[in-house]
Computed example of a mutant assay.
Amino acid sequence: MKIVFKNVEHIDGEIKVKEKVFTIPHANAKHYRQLLKFDETIDYSNMGVEEHDELVGFVCEVFQNQFTVDEFYDGIPAHETVGTLINVFTFVRTGKTPEQLKAEEEQDEKEKNG
């Protein structure tokens, strides 16, 4: 699983995007357990700042604190925030990225339809 931060920098009067990639080979079982707790306590369709911060903190833990909550918020484009959370949650639950799951589904569909 990987997360890509896209930090905007001003270099020599130009705006440049610097990417930084963070990876993990797998999530721990304690992270799966924590997701189960979130499912019981958080209404994902109506989250406030505190819930978002808690979930971003969880993502930091899943990635073994390679970055902080503030670095996450600075590095992830706003329109990718929720999608990034969902992707990490999917990885914790299944051990696979959404792209891997989609590829498996497509392969299963091909085999099914012969």
Rank of each mutant, 00 (worst) to 15 (best):
T97A: 04
V21T: 14
M1R: 09
E99C: 02
V59N: 05
V82G: 08
Q34R: 08
Q34K: 12
P77Y: 06
Y32K: 12
K18I: 15
I15E: 09
V92W: 04
Q66N: 05
I11L: 13
A103G: 02
N65M: 04
E111R: 08
E54D: 07
E51G: 04
R93M: 08
V92M: 09
R33N: 12
D43E: 08
E105Q: 10
D108H: 07
H10R: 15
K6H: 08
A29M: 09
F72Y: 13
N113F: 07
G48V: 03
V21N: 05
L85K: 00
T94I: 06
K37Y: 07
D43H: 05
R33L: 13
D43T: 06
F67N: 03
P98F: 01
T94F: 02
I86N: 01
F89T: 04
K6A: 08
C60E: 04
M47N: 06
E99N: 07
E61T: 11
K30H: 10
H79S: 13
H79G: 08
R93H: 06
V4T: 15
P77Q: 01
V49H: 02
P98R: 00
H31G: 02
V4R: 09
K16I: 15
K6Q: 10
K18S: 09
E99W: 04
D12F: 10
F63S: 01
H52A: 10
E111V: 13
M47D: 07
D12K: 12
A27C: 06
I3V: 05
V82C: 06
N7S: 02
D70V: 05
V69N: 06
Q100P: 01
G95A: 11
Q34N: 05
R33W: 07
E54P: 04
D39L: 09
Y73G: 02
Y44N: 11
G48A: 00
T90A: 06
E50P: 07
M47G: 03
E109Y: 11
E106A: 12
T97Q: 04
I11N: 08
D74E: 14
K112L: 15
V69K: 13
G48R: 00
Q34T: 13
K112T: 09
T68W: 02
M1S: 14
H79A: 11
T97S: 14
F91T: 09
Y44C: 12
N28A: 06
V82L: 12
H31M: 02
I42Q: 04
I3W: 01
E111F: 08
T90P: 05
M1I: 07
F38A: 09
F5A: 03
K2N: 09
A29I: 08
H26A: 15
Y73M: 09
P77F: 02
L35G: 01
I15F: 06
E80R: 08
